[in-house]
Design a protein around this nucleic acid. Structure first.
Length: 644
RNA sequence: GCCCGAGUAGCUCAGCCGGUAGAGCAGCUCAUUCGUAAUGAGCAGGUCAGGGGUUCGAGUCCCCUCUCGGGCUCCA
């Protein structure tokens, strides 16, 4: 290649040509038109890789900005980065205008025109002075350039400006549209096209709620028609699994407006699922050496003053109730009350570790816009535990705790985990040595557990480092569930102690830990993970018996009695509507076993078994054999308590 | 909390330019008694989220409140 040749020339005659949209030159992403020098290290960026898609999406967001400025003269544009599955762009429309749903249709049509025109993206580098002149009418762009001048670039800005040059770079389209941008971009708008605008939203400038709110448009964009289609199918699948929809369809819970936002009631089937989840958890805790605790829902201000909650967390609490001269608060956490149980007697090292466990319902004032089905509520039940142990036991305790957490999650059929180790934030309290000891104990526990983890520097609570466990559900979404925190503050605030083996008064370490996180939220995750088809042991109804006609009803009810005696949850659907209709109804209820019994079965002591998910029913199964199968699949899982 | 959108029967939704509310499913009744995803007929079901306003007249237009949805912010 001659010196000064451009990237695109490398591709002539190569198979990668059609899907390569950019280059990586010496480790930096560049346009295909980037001039190359002898000795440059080159990689091709394919549009179907995450890197390629990001470029594609970023270019699509430019086209969006161009379309909006075409259709809304005077619109100011702010930033428009690629994001997971798509892109967005933030605008400030003249006269405080807002986008309406019909606007998206017009904008999308204009974008398709721009793409059809095949406008090229041409890079140009300017001094920041030139940049500010060019964007004189674009205050948000000027603000970004000024940040570049002060070297005060935030993560949000890196798509907008090149960090590696002294000035700024811009991209011009052949139509004259120009945007501040680091690049790279696809060579022309004709490369784009597999996109869809999704929704509009308000978004604060620079993500700060004190700043004015801009109008954001979200879109999705992909390298091919098929990839776009697959993405839209995934969205439809997520909608089908939405726990709020399934909660109504399966008659599990609802949110009565008369009670208030974020305060669910559980109907019999939902309450049963909850009971099963909680009971399994409770039994597991007892087997693992926990002791139960039970504490009230309200407490005097004194308690939360000592704990510090009223100091740091007042805004997140329900306001006070005045009673006999004292202020009472709904508890936002259970820990202070568990500490009082600890403190009810003088503790010896022989009592430790003391592991207290409670399904504690707490109340938190979540802002109305933050509420989301069962996943974000104002009254939630934590499967909360506080473990008090001597300093030297900390590492061992955390390791076995993490093992317990993962075993329990696995028992619910969840297998894909990733943890985050959140370390000391800048604003925090406590001694360095304590932080180090606690963080180190967490890190060693993670190493032993074998699950992948990342270190989130400075993401810890101000009083403690923590491990957060995330899981990936059946359709690849991540949820944060368990949290495990070493508390360096509360033992001091409550002046907790125990007598060690040499009779010295010693401060215990305290571990907070919730495993489901909240029962409500965990149920939401299970509903979505299983698309409402709970594992047999959690299904509110495990077996539905359908007598073909009334004459065999008695056989059906005897069968029901027998299966119930074995501990299974069985319903009968009488023959007052056609069999097909009853099958359909039971299928929609996602019942694991539908049993059809008719004359043949009465004669032979058999059942027709229609298993959830099976293509065909299984006729003439002897009752004994079915019962054995049922008892096996409906059994509560056995927790692996093997100590690591 | 903020921006946008929505709220009509238990559920899903229709209801045009303002003229007094409609379907399917679910429910109830009767008939049907059936072998693996919808039997038929009939009946009942509504303060059109709530309040205020404009109008001869409001589900429809305007204002306020509540609730929900999508985002932003927040999640100690």
């Amino acid at each position: 290649m001659p010196d000064g040749a451009v990237g695109a020339e490398l591709l002539v005659g190569r198979r990668e040509r059609s899907s390569t949209i950019a280059l990586v030159v010496n480790g930096i992403e560049r346009d295909l038109s980037w001039p190359l020098s002898d000795g440059d290290q080159i990689e091709f960026v394919d549009s179907s890789t995450e890197r390629g898609r990001a470029i594609l999406r970023h270019s699509t967001s430019h086209v969006l900005a161009q379309a909006v400025t075409d259709l809304f003269p005077g619109a100011k544009f702010a930033i428009g980065p690629p994001i997971q599955d798509g892109f967005y762009y933030d605008f400030d429309l003249p006269d405080g205008r807002h986008f309406e749903p019909e606007d998206l249709v017009r904008i999308e049509a204009r974008m398709r025109e721009i793409m059809k025109e095949g406008q090229s993206f041409v890079r140009e580098e300017l001094s920041s002075e030139e940049g500010k002149r060019l964007f004189a009418e674009q205050p948000y762009k000027v603000e970004i350039i000024e940040r570049v001048e002060r070297s005060d670039i935030e993560e949000d800005d890196v798509n907008e400006v090149g960090q590696d040059e002294g000035g700024v770079s811009v991209y011009r389209n052949s139509s004259g549209f120009v945007d501040l941008c680091r690049g790279p971009h696809v060579p022309t708008t004709s490369v784009l096209g597999h996109f869809q605008l999704m929704r509009t939203a308000g978004a604060y400038w620079r993500g700060d709620e004190r700043n004015p709110q801009l109008q954001r448009i979200y879109g999705t964009a992909w390298e091919s028609k098929d990839a776009l289609k697959q993405h839209l199918l995934r969205l439809a699948e997520a909608e089908r699994r939405d726990h709020r929809r399934l909660g109504v369809e399966l008659d599990l819970f609802h949110f009565p407006p008369e009670i208030g936002s974020g305060l669910p009631v559980f109907h019999p089937k939902g309450a049963l699922v909850r009971y099963l989840m909680e009971e399994f958890s409770r039994q597991s805790h007892l087997k693992a050496g926990y002791q139960l605790a039970w504490t009230p829902h309200v407490a005097k201000s004194t308690l939360f003053e000592i704990s510090g909650h009223l100091g740091w967390y007042r805004d997140g609490m329900f306001p006070a109730m005045e009673l006999e001269g004292a202020a009472y608060y709904m508890k936002p956490m259970n820990c202070p009350m568990h500490i009082l149980i600890y403190k009810s007697q003088a503790r010896s090292y022989r009592d430790l570790p003391l592991r207290l466990f409670e399904f504690g319902t707490v109340y938190r004032y979540e802002r109305s816009g933050a509420l989301h089905g069962l996943a974000r509520v104002r009254g939630l039940t934590q499967d909360d535990s506080h473990i008090f142990c001597p300093p030297e036991r900390l590492a061992e305790e955390i390791a076995s705790l993490l093992h317990f957490v993962l075993s329990l999650l696995r028992a619910f059929g969840l297998n894909e985990f990733e943890a985050e180790l959140a370390t000391r934030p800048e604003k925090s309290v406590g001694e360095d040595a304590e932080w180090e000891l606690a963080t180190d104990a967490l890190r060693r526990a993670l190493d032993r557990s074998g699950i992948p983890y990342v270190v989130a520097e400075g993401e810890g609570a101000f009083y403690a480092p923590k491990i957060d466990v995330h899981l990936t559900d059946a359709i690849g979404r991540r949820w944060q569930v368990s949290t495990l925190q070493v508390d360096l503050q509360l033992p001091q605030r409550f002046d907790m102690s125990f007598n060690d083996a040499s009779n010295a008064k010693t401060r215990p370490y305290m571990i907070h830990r919730a495993l489901f996180g909240s029962v409500e939220r965990f149920m939401a995750i299970l509903i979505e993970h299983y698309a409402g088809a709970f594992p047999d042991w959690l299904s509110p109804v495990q077996v539905k018996i359908l007598p073909v006609k009334e004459e065999v009803a008695e056989y059906g009810s005897k069968l029901a009695d027998r299966l119930r005696a074995g501990g299974c949850r069985v319903e009968i659907s009488e023959a007052n509507e056609p069999l097909g209709a009853r099958i359909r109804r039971a299928k929609m209820e996602k019942i694991p076993y539908i049993l059809v019994v008719g004359e043949d079965d009465v004669a032979n002591g058999t059942v027709g078994v229609n298993r959830r998910g099976a293509d065909h029913p299984d006729r003439d199964v002897p009752i004994d054999r079915f019962e054995a199968e049922l008892l096996k699949t409906c059994a509560t899982p056995v927790l692996d308590l093997g100590h690591s």
